[in-house]
Simulated scan of single mutants.
Amino acid sequence: MIALRPPVSGDVPQMRGLLDQLGYPVTESDLRARLAALAPEDLVLVAEQEARLLGVIALHRASILHIGPVARIMTLVVDEAARSGGVGRLLLEAGAAWARQAGCHTLELTSGKQRLRAHAFYEGLGFTASGLRLHRAL
């Protein structure tokens, strides 16, 4: 059975491995600092089965462009060996439930253009493409 829960300190090494799979390497000390800096408008959950982390979702709630708050998925990663097994859907549904409870009317995310499999997953869950994300390094 897969359990969803907030991360604990002992999860950091496995979380780091999941973020590496997503293409965002981070040191354990940096990840610990990021988790410690979470605000009340943030949520991080891990999916665990038999002491192994299968996935992570991180969301942020904000309200500036819209009439009500919007929840943005900042991170969603499922272990490569556990993909297509329902873990991503469980994490996303838990994030959506949190967002609804927080008064959000929209759940949004960005995804790299190269992540075609992820796009199909999101579209299968009702997401639609509505914009273009641009960025620049500072």
Rank of each mutant, 00 (worst) to 15 (best):
L91P: 01
V77I: 11
A33F: 05
G55R: 09
I73R: 10
S111M: 06
T128D: 08
L35I: 10
L59D: 01
A51D: 14
D11E: 09
R52D: 05
P6N: 09
A51P: 00
H105N: 08
T27E: 14
A37T: 04
L45C: 04
P40V: 03
L18A: 02
D79P: 02
G55P: 10
S130I: 13
R32T: 12
G10Q: 13
K113W: 12
Q14S: 11
T106Y: 14
L116N: 06
R34T: 02
H66P: 00
A94Q: 14
L125N: 08
A129G: 01
G17S: 09
S63T: 04
H60C: 06
P13V: 02
L19F: 14
P69A: 15
H119N: 02
R72K: 10
G85T: 05
L54Y: 01
A137I: 04
P7Q: 06
E123T: 12
I64Q: 12
V56C: 09
L92T: 11
I57G: 06
H105F: 11
R52E: 13
A58M: 13
A118K: 11
G131N: 08
R32V: 03
P13R: 05
L92M: 15
A97R: 15
A137N: 11
L59M: 15
G17P: 03
A36F: 01
H105L: 12
I2P: 14
S9W: 13
A36Q: 15
L18S: 05
V70P: 10
R16F: 01
L43R: 11
L18Q: 08
L107N: 07
D11T: 01
R61F: 01
G95M: 09
A33P: 01
G23W: 14
A81V: 08
L31S: 03
S29Q: 15
D11L: 02
Q101I: 01
Q101L: 11
F127I: 02
R136L: 10
P40I: 06
L45D: 04
